[in-house]
Design a protein around this nucleic acid. Sequence first.
DNA 1: TCATGTTTTAACCAAATGGTTAACAAAAGT
DNA 2: ACTTTTGTTAACCATTTGGTTAAAACATGA
Lengths: 205, 205
Amino acid sequence: MSKAKKDKPTEERILAAAKNIFVLKGMAGARMQDIADEAGINKALLHYYFKNKEQLFEVIFLEAAQKLFPKINQVFNADQPLFEKIESFCEEYIEVVMQNPYLPLFVLNEINQDPEHFLDKVWAGRTKPDPTKFLEQIEREVKKGTIKRISPLHLLMNLISMAIFPFVAKPMLQKNLGLDELQFRLIMQQRKKEIPKFIIDSIKK
Amino acid sequence: MSKAKKDKPTEERILAAAKNIFVLKGMAGARMQDIADEAGINKALLHYYFKNKEQLFEVIFLEAAQKLFPKINQVFNADQPLFEKIESFCEEYIEVVMQNPYLPLFVLNEINQDPEHFLDKVWAGRTKPDPTKFLEQIEREVKKGTIKRISPLHLLMNLISMAIFPFVAKPMLQKNLGLDELQFRLIMQQRKKEIPKFIIDSIKK
DNA sequence: TCATGTTTTAACCAAATGGTTAACAAAAGT
DNA sequence: ACTTTTGTTAACCATTTGGTTAAAACATGA
């Protein structure tokens, strides 16, 4: 029991422990015993709070997914000039993910295990993504002559890719480029500004 | 036994089966029984060819990693003008990954499970990545005045991110953007040209 | 033909793992 | 005080899973 596992109510400790273990090992690799240990309780109590592994996992997964998905949707729907939108997305998104660098890989990997199932759960109730507003916005900017004629779809993919991928490939990039934890954080900090600059340089007329 | 599992020698069938199962389910989620079934043999025979799960996994993982890593290194070291380099990288890399769309997520995810261990294995014997040549090349182009003063590191990250991430996020992108298999392939096909254009538009003076 | 080595199988085993039971302790009503 | 509800535990159970054994089928060479 390394951290502050003492006072907090049991359920919170379980959720925190489960998040650690699941994000680290994935659904298939996580062990209920490890989660119990990490929470400082025994396995029976774990099942007292969450009836089985699947249910506990779903709670953790959805919480993680909610942290990542809505912000992307916001690029579609926010009422904001295009360039500002790109800037604020990078700023906000990278900030969020820097707090939880392993979330994207975790979420993408689990979605991959059963796309239909999880994506349905993620968007259940919530408004599904709708690119039309974004498409119109691009169209308008093109007509105004402020940006080149570009494919909104590729633009969107480029934006998301450049912001998220470095986290997904974090260990690989660190090792292969010889970056320690601090250097990596610094670089991602820079990217909050670098990515918008890179994109705007590319698309503005 | 759906496909041509009949004639090929046992060891090849095992490797093919193992690749399928491991890439799909990951090390932790894969079952030796499933691999045996997929190869059309029984578990004892599987252990006759590969003494345990770990060893079989390592063969599959390394083969997968070799397919993805060296090509990135080549961006560093190839003796080629910068713009051409970017173009040929996108062309070749996206082509390779389109044949195995699930490899990147598989490899990144497993590396994440134990970065030190796997990255050591991947680069064992092989020349480790060395960015200096690439850095110099950028520096030269900047001095020549052909491109803006940019950070080579961010450029490299942008390039790799835009090429690979869509595959890592494939199921998520397909579902959220409503793309079927064919549309996705078409878009990735376009990206072979779109990404270089996007980058060069951004950095050229 | 028969002896030898190789490939394949069915049956088996021990450890790991998700989950349950029944009893005990603590808290909350009354 | 005492009854009921809630929280917690140790011990247990059934299934899954990676791995082994011993014998059978097959191939090979003398």
